[in-house]
């Protein structure tokens, strides 16, 4: 799997927020096998220095986000600040349309993506499964799309499987990452079985009773789902079909 020329082995991308402690965050990243972690920019808090150390020690690629931005300008300025601080052109572009639903604002998203791509950013847009919005993002210069599974932090899994399946078919050669809404490893495995390239999640690990164990479970689920996709799933049938041969069966009745 390649994002903007960077080859990755793990198809699980992990958020770094909401963990019970920095130690658990560090262990969860390691247990997940993730090679990409998302981070944000905020006003300095007490734990800032320790967090930077964890990022460096993890050896992961850093994907800064624009979480919480509601306008094009906020998102673009945040991206600029992140690029200087993290020395990466990668940015997970979020332009939120509504404070309660955290649904992306597709109009502002496309506009911000256009500006940032033109400035050399490598944009990972948090979007919906809408095909036209996806096309506009690609036109803007995005070479990865990140459709939501469900609203951020909701843990509902893939709310519109048919829509996501259409998106996968429509953008056949573009890396697609399911970002947000994943609550359980089975949901992550399903995303991979559908042919998505990767899964990005945070809350499902951070808010688990044992985040480190859950990180490992997600790592295995994503790997299993991808292996299943590569192996080729059997076609679904409406009726039963005996798996044991009828031929050669004894007459005993």
């Amino acid at each position: 799997m390649t994002f903007y020329g960077v080859s990755l082995t793990s198809r699980l991308m992990l958020g770094t927020a909401q963990y019970p402690s920095p130690t658990i965050l560090r262990q969860a990243i390691a247990a997940s096998g993730a090679e990409v972690v998302t981070v944000s920019l905020r006003r300095e808090g007490a734990e800032g220095a320790g967090f930077r150390d964890i990022l460096v020690q993890s050896g992961c690629h850093i994907l800064p986000n624009t979480a919480g931005c509601h306008s094009v300008k906020e998102a673009v300025t945040t991206a600029h600040m992140a690029r200087e601080l993290f020395r990466t052109n990668w940015v997970k572009l979020e332009v939120i349309g509504h404070a309660d639903t955290l649904q992306p604002d597709p109009f502002a998203l496309v506009e911000a993506a256009r500006i940032l791509c033109a400035e050399g950013f490598e944009v990972f847009p948090y979007t919906t499964e809408d095909l036209i919005v996806g096309e506009k993002l690609v036109e803007a210069g995005c070479r990865v799309l990140m459709p939501w599974g469900a609203p951020i932090g909701s843990g509902q899994g893939l709310r519109n499987i048919d829509g996501l399946r259409s998106m996968r078919a429509h953008f056949r050669d573009l890396p697609l990452v399911i970002d947000a809404g994943i609550g359980a490893p089975s949901q992550a495995a399903l995303a991979m079985e559908l042919g998505f390239d990767a899964v990005l999640l945070n809350t499902a690990v951070a808010k688990a009773t044992d985040p480190v164990a859950m990180a490992g479970a997600f790592g295995q689920a994503v790997a299993a789902g991808r292996a299943a996709h590569d192996a080729g799933l059997m076609p679904r049938r409406d009726m039963a079909s005996a798996s044991t041969p009828i031929f050669g069966m004894a007459e005993l009745g």
């Binding site: 981070v39 944000s40 920019l41 808090g45 930077r52």
Partner: peptide
């Protein structure tokens, strides 16, 4: 003026 630092994010 905003002065921002790396923080945990999803």
């Amino acid at each position: 003026v905003e002065v921002l630092s790396p923080m945990q994010g999803g």
